[in-house]
């Protein structure tokens, strides 16, 4: 075997990268093509100077409004998930109290729940709460779906941090709130970034819940708003792909910006 094990792994990884990247590349290329070009030569390189599709996304839809809605919904959901998730995880990881494990299991049970099956009860609940066609409907659901993974990731991470750090802060006279804020939070940041990215992508891209709960054009999120171009009789694929490209852009940029945080070994030097 000339290649050996490593060579084989390399081939598999390269193949995997191609499979993962191909849809994104085709999406970007199709954003610069007309409907006809997309069907005649789906894999050909487009003329990147033809930005007509992008202009149409900009002018024929409320792109900016949808973008803002997506930002508001995703941003508030993530903020709530991180705040609630970190506090819950810290309590579960560090304080011994009756039922702590039960609560953790209860959070984990949330991972196994296919929320879309509960959409009718959810709809009834939101209607009774008077939250239909509001951003709160989306935010509440996203926070509920995001908390299990967040609590799971952060509880494990906080448990791995040395106990003596908190003891040292306690000896120094720090209150429990200050220990959490000044000592633990900076150390937990890498795990919070992971939890954030883990949640941002599905929330940003979600199509299902906005479709169910949002009717007003003013409140539509990006994936929902872009369906303007998906008609009953014909779909303008080129424009749709431009919209998708624009919609994926913020997440991709965020991903690249935050990926450095992953490897930030903050605990190095805390203990020997």
């Amino acid at each position: 075997m000339a290649l050996g094990r490593d060579g084989l792994i390399q081939i598999i990884l390269i193949g995997n990268s191609i499979v993962m990247l191909a849809p994104i590349i085709i999406m970007v290329m199709s954003a610069f093509k007309t409907n006809a070009q997309i069907f005649q030569s789906p894999f050909s390189l487009p003329d990147f100077t033809k930005v007509g599709n992008l202009v149409r996304v900009w002018t024929e839809t409320d792109f900016i409004r949808y973008l803002m809605n997506s930002f508001i919904v995703t941003g508030s959901s993530i903020a709530l998930i991180l705040v609630l998730g970190t506090m819950a995880a810290y309590a579960l990881a560090r304080y011994e109290f009756r039922g702590a494990n039960l609560i953790l299991l209860f959070f984990l049970a949330g991972l196994t729940l296919p929320l879309k099956l509960a959409v009718i009860p959810l709809f009834i609940q939101m209607r009774d709460l008077g939250l239909l066609d509001t951003r709160f409907a989306l935010i509440f659901i996203y926070v509920a779906t995001g908390l299990p993974t967040t609590v799971f990731i952060l509880t494990g991470f906080i448990r791995s941090l040395p106990n003596e750090l908190e003891d040292a802060a306690r000896m120094d006279g720090a209150s429990e709130a200050r220990i959490m804020w000044a000592i633990m939070l900076p150390l937990v940041r890498p795990a919070m970034v992971i939890a954030a990215i883990q949640n941002i992508v599905p929330i940003w891209n979600d199509f299902f819940f906005p479709l169910i709960f949002i009717q007003s054009n003013d409140l539509k999120t990006l994936p929902q708003g872009l369906t303007t171009f998906m008609g009953e009789f014909g779909t303008d694929w080129g424009v749709l792909f431009s919209g998708l490209t624009l919609s994926a852009l913020p997440v991709i940029i965020l991903y690249i910006a935050l990926s450095r945080q992953f490897v930030n070994g903050m605990t190095a030097g805390a203990i020997k």
Binding site: R170, I183, A270, I271
Partner: peptide, 16 residues
Amino acid sequence: SRRGIAMVFQSYALYP
């Protein structure tokens, strides 16, 4: 913190 006691931990527990 109100006992007038300070402690040096085995792992040092410096805030990283």
